[in-house]
């Protein structure tokens, strides 16, 4: 949080309205390079809406934001080149093989054939998928799909990777492995912006923000938040903030 850190996401009163409904209300925060930024909130708090504005597929109603230095209104296509994204819905092509998915997304982000081949080999070896590489993604267990989806989201080494509830429905061991991968990415200088439901995961983040009813209610490091709310765990912090929520599941 020192000033020499490079800011990669900066939002200023970013707002999204759907008719009378304010899904995200004047959101203001900054995310620094290499940071793991946890974006928390109950269902319907406006996390996904906010994230969609940041990744350039939803136009804000008002406010400003820059992602990797590009404006969310005018430079969405430049933003898209600098980010990776893994959606809540599993979004690899199930009817393509692992190799074919890797090649597709490598190609879309403009990597050269040699580069794709080199990184693909590394990736397959790292994930130990040598024997599955030519099988359809549909045949993989969910945990593997998620790990693969994450690897593909950072395949083109983006500046920032956005993860929308990446570990939903995965067993604890796989979640642990998944977070190891996130740490590794962050270590390599990729900023990680992650939404999650799991409060234990929030503890792994450098900083977390908690959204309630479209507004950011708190933003600090997990330790800082616990101190601020005089709580023992992130769980307690979250419950304290979210119990007054009007919207919900």
């Amino acid at each position: 949080m020192t000033s020499e850190k490079e800011i990669v996401i900066k939002t200023d009163k970013l707002t999204k309205k759907f008719g009378d409904f304010i899904a995200a209300n004047e959101i203001t925060f900054e995310v620094f390079k290499g940071e793991i930024f946890g974006f928390l909130g109950a269902n319907g708090a406006g996390k996904t809406t906010a994230m969609k504005m940041l990744i350039g597929i939803s136009k804000p109603s008002s406010g400003n934001a820059t992602i990797a230095g590009f404006d969310v209104y005018k430079e969405t296509e430049k933003i898209k080149k600098s980010i990776g994204y893994m959606s809540q819905k599993f979004s690899l092509y199930e009817d393509l093989t692992i190799n074919e998915n890797i090649q597709l997304f490598g190609g879309i982000y403009g990597l050269s054939d040699d580069e794709i081949e080199k990184r693909r080999n590394e990736l397959i070896n790292k994930l130990n998928l040598q024997s599955e590489a030519d099988k359809l993604v549909a045949s993989l267990p969910l945990g593997w799909k998620q790990k693969l989806a994450f690897s593909i989201a950072i395949f083109h080494t983006p500046k920032i990777v956005f993860l929308d509830e990446p570990t939903g429905g995965v067993d604890p061991i796989t979640r642990r492995q998944f977070w190891d991968m996130i740490y590794e990415a962050s270590h390599n200088g990729i900023t990680v912006f992650v939404t999650t439901h799991y409060m234990d995961e929030a503890e792994y983040c450098d900083r977390v923000s908690i959204m309630v009813d479209g507004v950011i209610k708190a933003l600090d490091s997990p330790a800082g938040l616990k101190k601020q709310f005089n709580a023992n765990s992130m769980d307690e912090v979250f419950i304290m903030l979210a119990r007054d929520a009007k919207r919900g599941e």
């Binding site: 990744i55 350039g56 597929i57 296509e77 430049k78 898209k80 080149k81 980010i83 994204y85 959606s87 819905k89 599993f90 979004s91 690899l92 092509y93 199930e94 997304f105 879309i108 982000y109 403009g110 956005f162």
Partner: peptide, 14 residues
């Protein structure tokens, strides 16, 4: 419907 289009929409495809 399946959701894969989102992955393409966040990419720099023209």
């Amino acid at each position: 419907e399946i959701g894969t289009i989102e992955q393409l929409n966040v990419s720099p495809i023209k």
